[in-house]
Amino acid sequence: MLDFARTDPRLLDDVADVVDALVSHTDVNPGSVMLVGARCRDAIHSALGASEPTRTTNDLDIGLALDDWGAFDRIDRRFVHIGSNGIRYRIADMPVDVMPFGAAIESPDGIATPATRGESLVVFGFEDVFARAMRIRLPNHGHEIRIPSPPGYGVLKAQAWVDRSIDHEYKDAGDLAVVLGWYENSRVTADRLYDDSLDMDLTERYDFDQRLSTAHLLGRDIRQQLSSGRDDELATAFAASDLSMFARQLGDRLGELTVRLELTRAFAAGLTDDSRADVGA
């Protein structure tokens, strides 16, 4: 069961310092901040009680919900740029990618173009995930920010796979393998798959193969995070990506390649399935 009270506080201490610096120096509303990226993954992982390690990284990424560019401009004036992607700053002695999103600044939908970057930034699904995100109170300064649910995190990683696998960047498949692991080890998932009023249709569809049912259920829940139109857009884009490569990049933990190919097909089928509302891991 997801419980952020048991999240390892070491995963959130520097997040708290970064958010406090944004609040103190640029008047950012902490409620507009959403933790994304690897630290989001690790915080969810810990909140689910998982002990096995995930892929090691020192990245810190936050999404920032905006009604206009004012808050982002204040960040740009106050903090030092580092790196070359146009959205990375040194904040509270941490390298932080600040990803702006929101209907008012996206044009077209799912694309933000910060002046500092000089090119478009894909933020597809951020607004939907933010709307469904959970609230978490950070240590030390007590600021409350948002963090995606497990399927919300899955939305961001599925879209990242679509965007980055074209350029032969495949790490997002490994992150989705972690999400699938969350679902496979979840008592909530098991209860859903054996309850006639919930998702037992999937158990029967896959001849009681719980791993395939779970992969489909994850895809279905990810779809339910998205508003109408965006759900089909993600499903179509994922299906058009290199699914054989996706299966290879899921990692040996999920079994031999033939098994991973079956899991990939079940997951892709779930992304097209809008027959149930999500419950989450």
Rank of each mutant, 00 (worst) to 15 (best):
S32L: 08
V33R: 03
M34S: 02
R39E: 01
R39L: 10
R39F: 04
R39G: 00
C40S: 15
D42C: 12
I44Y: 01
S46I: 06
A47M: 10
L48K: 08
A50Q: 12
A50V: 05
A50K: 11
A50F: 13
E52H: 09
T54Y: 06
R55P: 01
T57L: 08
T57Q: 01
N58K: 13
D59G: 01
D59Y: 08
I62R: 00
G63H: 11
G63M: 10
L64R: 08
A65Y: 12
A65Q: 13
L66K: 04
L66D: 08
D67E: 13
W69L: 11
F72Q: 07
F72Y: 15
F72A: 03
I75P: 13
F79N: 04
F79L: 09
V80A: 15
V80M: 11
V80L: 14
H81D: 13
H81P: 04
H81G: 07
H81R: 15
G83A: 04
S84H: 15
N85L: 05
N85K: 07
G86A: 08
I87Y: 04
I87A: 02
R88G: 02
R88T: 13
Y89P: 00
A92P: 10
A92R: 05
D93P: 05
D93R: 15
M94W: 09
P95I: 02
V96T: 01
V96R: 05
V96P: 01
V96M: 06
D97R: 08
D97A: 11
D97I: 06
P100N: 07
P100L: 05
P100Q: 07
P100K: 01
F101Y: 10
G102T: 10
G102M: 08
A103H: 12
A104Q: 15
A104T: 06
A104H: 12
E106L: 05
E106I: 02
P108M: 07
D109S: 09
I111N: 00
A112R: 00
T113Y: 06
T113G: 01
P114Y: 02
R117D: 06
G118A: 04
E119T: 12
S120M: 13
S120H: 14
L121N: 07
V122W: 09
V123D: 06
F124W: 10
F124Y: 14
F124P: 00
F126S: 01
D128M: 13
D128N: 14
V129L: 11
V129N: 08
F130I: 04
F130R: 11
F130P: 06
A131E: 14
A131N: 14
A131S: 15
A131M: 11
R132H: 15
R132L: 14
A133E: 02
A133G: 09
R135S: 14
R135T: 11
I136M: 14
R137M: 07
L138E: 03
L138C: 12
P139Y: 11
H141Y: 15
G142C: 03
G142D: 03
G142V: 06
G142M: 05
G142S: 06
H143K: 12
E144M: 01
I145E: 02
I145C: 04
I145D: 00
I147T: 04
P148Q: 00
P148M: 00
P148G: 00
S149F: 03
P150D: 02
G152H: 07
Y153Q: 11
V155R: 03
V155C: 07
L156G: 05
L156Q: 09
K157T: 02
A158D: 05
A160I: 05
D163Y: 03
